[in-house]
Design a protein around this nucleic acid. Structure first.
Length: 1076
RNA sequence: GCCGUGGUGGCGGAAUUGGUAGACGCGUAGGUCUCAAAAACCUAUGAGGGCAACCUCGUGAGAGUUCGAUUCUCUCCCACGGCACCA
């Protein structure tokens, strides 16, 4: 009788056979005829943990192995390498506990992994195996660091970093999960340290754009985008004024709700102008800064910046004031009041004047604060038609009485020389429109003598004053009128040196808040998430849109690292600001309204942050977000500018750990960093270190490293003692694979040209963000350095899901739900393990392990084994099979499997093969029964051959990628059959895995008769058999359908009103009661 | 809260992208073999009704489009993953 399926024996035999014959090591030597023929399959770099292979590894490795074997049999030149991401914390932590050096544990772990992988029959090209902890590899990791350093993309910076007190190392933001260390779940602290960074932000825009070039799952792309976090919005400048200044202004009635504060520095102006220029906003209204009584910008200067004067007259000609500059009046007889007021430390001089310009009443207040040498000017505008009209009436009155009345009241007029002798530019009275006034002004400006750029002293003053401006990023510029406070993060408040402006009275309180907030970690701040703490600084800042002077708070709900580190508080339309305002009793001013929805500032409603129509926003009332945007930017251009911010930050690569690639930097006796010379690479990891955590990098304890540095660079030189983040190692390994033994370069240009980019990459969803981002950054950098000629490393990528424990939860030792590959291989064999994991469901889904379901695959493989055994012991050899149903099923199966493998639908491919085996078995049984009628016993009957050797071969070939051991066994066994032997001999391959993939015969795969369902009023009421050559003939099929008995019953006494036939699919009849 | 993914028998999952819902496997029940058990094999297996042919319901809930919806549209519910005081 036939043999029993002995998986252990079979698998050991062929594993050895493949290894001896080096079948899968040949890829590198094969010549590519055509570039399309190469196939670089990449498995995510794995960390060789001491626990050995996990069933999750098996899934993705098997999936890729199936692809590798499939493509090889289809004549592709397949490159399928393997390696180990061997640096990392677990080995080091183990060393701390036991004293066993990481080199040793890592080596053992790799050996275990390699053994297990081979046992699974993964057809890796082991000739190119690599490990990141090998000096031959990390030499080039260090080389990469030096290239980045040379290009200015590796830099040192000090800053607050996440510190894990247990791991004694710095963590990247992304390694902190819910405030605890990703690896050991310890609370993360904040610590200030000198660190190395890679400037990945230089590539932020390209990292976004490149996503269009690759075939990746859309959610992955979305997550990358989210991580880079590009957001368009605007920056809004709030000018800080002290309380005493505020009081003075109030006296002047100079700050009604529609006033505008102006404050500018030179570089800001330059920025604005350039921005306009880039945005091609030539022709818009322009701000004319008058920097000094003697320094004017001529029209030429504006033109030099690419800005044209606006020709329209509807816009106010706005003037900017900076120190020592007063005013340029655009109308001839503005009412100018001059006043002096004594305050504590000096004198404030005020000049205010009103003028009327094309539809707006303008009030300008110029103030000079002697002691601070500051001047603010405020432009105040008529808010609506009514005030405009009344102001105009006033204005005309004023004009009528100009000459005598002004003099009587001792008011000065712009027409007159300035009483204080300050240079005031005067325009002749013009009755004509604004354009002409503008032209006149520009003519006058041109005549003014030009003074060179600001002198040092003035420049310094301008710079100082810049700190008195708080910029806030917002994506909701349409709510700007509703900003009733400004909240600054503690860090930013410190940076801006705002504390010195806080009044004595409050300073202590503010200082105290700052100190305790800065001490808190990011994590601690999050604990009090709903508790919006903050302190009123007593400072006021002027909302550039509403002109309202609003309080400035320091609040730790504002993040320092995002945007500008300060926010404009719009409590009416932002939930956080709302909570803050409620707690601190701040004004809540609704500026957005929605049709059919009420606003009540007592309770927050989610729709308060929805887009809507602007209200309480002056002339912008009624506009929506989009409509207002451009206009706001233009109207308040002196304080608003478009801005884009990113969440992505530079990559912090320093790790205070031992088991990683040393950063190739040495410091001279002055402490200045210098790169290690290339001839000194690899800059080897010393072995004489103390693993015990001390809070300092273990490399500091190495005498060898210190001695080496002094010997090579001189006395007093010291080595960098940090190692690199292991993400650095694992973000370029796929370049090294193609020339993993090259000692002269990081990779071989010819091999790179030949194999890269990677055609298919399979990684777990845990690597979606960082690994991919970093790899893409390296590729783009190396490309810019001329080493590569492609933009994206991974053309096609898919993810494997997670294999869960039988309880549906994530496998973990503590839950006791871990299934190990070894135990399954032991019991059922590697073929069963592979196939079961492929059969569990879609590759990308998370699936629970079903202990009892594994046996289904084992049964299937046993049946395959038995069937082929039975076949090969049959005495008669068939050239061509005569069993029609079996033939059809076989060819349908070849077709389906050939389509499913490249689509990664392994589960349905396996289901189809099972169906085939079911049909095959049934056919054998049928034949046996036929024979049994003649013969008496089963032995006499023997094994009927209903299937030809061509067919058997075809089947085991399509099975081969899934169950490579079984397929090889059967392949070699049926070679004893005469006919099969001939067919196998036609291919010189000594292994089924190097043989040729079978083709299917479309004609044989076709069903002779198709059962077409017949629907009546949408319900299936019968089916009609149609010969396959009549499928296209609508009338024939419809006629036949109507004759079907079950259909007839429904048609009685009814009228068919509609007939639908979808060829090969369905007949649908719509019936009504027949008209009487 | 935001972004993303999904919800189909007792379970894992199919369904040619709008055309007979539940392929394939597990489990379960009954049977064959056996002294018995295990293994293996055979038959049945969405729910309800009927002796039966058949009928009704049924893909998270509700509505819509259609001759026809697991598939498309809208509203809602639930689960999972990522980000999160991100302005």
């Amino acid at each position: 009788m036939s043999k029993v399926y002995d998986h252990t024996k079979i698998e050991e035999k062929w594993q050895q056979y493949w290894e001896e014959n080096k079948f899968f090591l040949k890829t590198q030597n094969q010549e590519i005829k055509n570039i399309k023929d190469k196939m670089y399959l990449l498995f995510a770099f794995a960390y060789p943990s001491g626990q050995g292979l996990h069933v999750g590894h098996v899934e993705s490795k098997t999936a890729l192995d199936i692809l590798a074997r499939y493509y090889r049999m289809n004549g592709k030149n397949v490159f399928f390498p393997v390696g180990f991401d061997a640096f990392g914390l677990p080995a080091e932590n183990y060393a701390i506990q036991t004293g066993v050096p990481p080199v040793k544990t890592t080596k053992n772990a790799i050996n275990t992994f390699r053994r297990q992988i081979k046992r699974l029959g993964i057809s890796y090209d082991f000739a190119n195996e690599l490990a990141t902890c090998h000096p031959g590899y990390y030499k080039w990791t260090q080389w990469l660091f030096l290239q980045l350093y040379k290009a200015g993309l590796a830099y040192q910076d000090t800053g607050m970093v996440n510190w894990c007190p247990s791991c004694q190392t710095v963590l990247a933001n992304e390694q902190v999960v819910d405030g605890v260390c990703e690896r050991c779940d310890t609370q993360v602290m904040q610590k200030e340290m000198e660190q190395w960074f890679f400037k990945i932000t230089d590539y932020k825009d390209e990292l976004i754009a490149g996503l269009d070039q690759v075939d990746w799952p859309a959610p992955t792309k979305a997550q990358q985008l989210n991580w880079i976090g590009k957001k368009d919005g605007a920056e809004v400048d709030f000018i800080v004024v002290t309380q005493s200044e505020m009081d003075e202004l109030k006296d002047q009635d100079a700050l009604p709700t529609t006033s505008v504060a102006l404050d500018h520095t030179l570089d800001q102006l330059e920025k604005i102008i350039k921005k306009w220029y880039q945005k091609q906003l030539v022709g818009s209204a322009v701000e004319v800064p008058v920097l000094d009584s003697k320094v004017f910008f001529s029209r030429e200067i504006w033109q030099h910046f690419g800005v044209k004067f606006r020709s329209g007259s509807e816009r106010l000609f706005r003037l900017l004031a900076v120190p020592k500059i007063y005013s340029v009046l655009t109308s001839p007889c503005a009412v100018v009041t001059a006043r002096e007021k004594k305050i504590k430390n000096g004198v404030i001089k005020f000049w205010s004047f009103e003028e009327f310009v094309d539809g707006a009443v303008v009030k300008v207040v110029v103030r000079e604060l002697e002691h601070e040498k500051h001047v603010y000017s405020v432009i105040w505008r008529g808010e609506n038609e009514d005030s405009f009209e009344s102001k105009r009436a006033q204005w005309q009155q004023c004009h009528e009485n100009h000459k005598n009345k002004h003099k009587k009241k001792k008011l000065s007029c712009a027409c007159d020389p300035h009483p204080q002798g300050i240079n005031t530019l005067q325009l002749p009275f013009l009755n004509s429109n604004y354009t002409e006034k503008l032209l006149e002004l520009s003519r006058l400006l041109q005549e003014m003598p030009l003074k060179p750029w600001l002198d040092e002293e003035l420049l310094q003053r301008v710079k100082n004053r810049a700190t008195a401006r708080i910029s806030c990023f917002t994506t909701r510029l349409d709510t700007v009128f509703g900003a009733t406070f400004v909240a600054v993060s503690p860090e930013k408040f410190k940076q801006l040196y705002l504390l010195k402006r806080v009044s004595e009275k409050r300073r202590g309180q503010v200082k105290q808040y700052l100190e305790q907030a800065l001490r808190k970690t990011e994590e601690e701040r999050q604990i009090g998430e709903k508790d919006k703490t903050g302190v009123d600084t007593g400072l006021k800042a002027v909302n550039p849109a509403s002109g309202q002077a609003v309080p400035v708070y320091v609040a730790d709900y504002v993040l320092s690292g995002y945007g500008t580190g300060a926010v404009m508080g719009v409590p009416a339309h932002d939930e956080r600001d709302f909570a803050f305002a409620k707690k601190h009793n701040l004004e809540i001013k609704q500026v957005i309204a929605w049709e059919g929805r009420e606003y009540d500032d007592h309770v927050w409603q989610t729709y308060y942050s929805d887009y809507g129509q602007m209200v309480n926003s002056g002339r912008f009332n009624g506009l929506d977000f989009i409509e207002s945007l451009e206009q706001l930017l233009e109207e308040f251009a002196y304080a608003l500018r478009p801005a884009t911010i990113y969440k992505l930050r530079d990559w912090l690569i320093s790790r205070q750990r031992y088991w990683g690639a040393p950063i190739p930097i040495v410091y001279d006796p002055e402490g200045k960093p210098h790169p290690v010379k290339e001839e000194h690479l690899p800059w080897e990891l010393p072995t004489d270190v103390d693993f015990k955590p001390t809070g300092e990098s273990p490399l500091k304890s190495s005498l060898e490293l210190k001695a080496r540095t002094e010997k090579l660079y001189g006395k007093g030189w010291t080595p960098e003692s940090d190692t690199m983040d292991t993400f650095v190692d694992s973000s370029w390994y796929f370049l090294r694979y193609v020339a993993s033994r090259d000692e002269t370069a990081f990779s071989d240009p010819a091999a790179l040209q030949k194999w890269l980019p990677v055609d298919f990459y399979m990684i777990g969803p845990e690597h979606i963000v960082l690994h991919l981002l970093y790899s893409r950054f390296f590729i783009k950098f190396l490309r810019d350095q001329g080493y590569l000629d492609f933009d994206e490393p991974f053309l096609k990528m898919r993810h494997q899901g997670m294999i869960l424990g039988p309880d549906g939860k994530k496998m973990s030792k503590s839950k006791g739900n871990v299934i190990t590959p070894d135990e399954v291989v032991e019991k059922f064999g590697a073929d069963t393990l592979r196939m079961y994991e492929m059969f569990m469901g879609p590759i990308e889904a998370d699936k629970p392990w079903d202990v009892s379901a594994v046996v289904g695959i084992y049964r299937f493989l046993s049946r395959v084994y038995q069937l082929v055994q039975t076949w090969s012991t049959a005495s008669n050899d068939l050239e061509i099979s005569t069993h029609e149903a079996l033939q059809r099923k076989l060819h349908q199966t070849i077709k389906k499997v050939s389509a499913d493998i490249p689509a990664l639908k392994f589960n349905t491919a396996i289901a189809m093969m099972m169906e085939l085996i079911n049909v095959w078995e049934a056919a054998v049984k049928e034949e046996t029964t036929k024979k049994a009628v003649v013969k008496e016993t089963a032995e006499e009957v023997g094994s009927p051959a209903v299937i030809s050797s061509t067919d058997v071969l075809a089947f085991i070939k399509i099975l081969a990628p899934f169950a490579p051991f079984m397929a090889e066994e059967l392949y070699q066994e049926i070679a004893e059959n005469q006919v099969a032997k001939k067919q196998i001999a036609e291919n010189p391959a000594q292994s089924i895995h190097l043989d040729v993939w079978p083709e299917w015969d479309e004609a044989l795969a076709l069903e002779q008769q198709v059962a077409i369902p017949v629907q009546i009023n949408g319900k299936v009421r019968g089916e009609v058999l149609v010969a396959h050559d009549q499928l296209e003939e609508k009338e024939v099929v419809l006629a036949a359908a109507k004759k079907v008995e079950s259909v007839q019953n429904y048609l009685k006494g009814k009228k068919v009103v509609k007939e639908i036939y979808v060829p090969g699919r369905i007949v649908s009849l719509v019936i009504r009661l027949a008209a009487k």
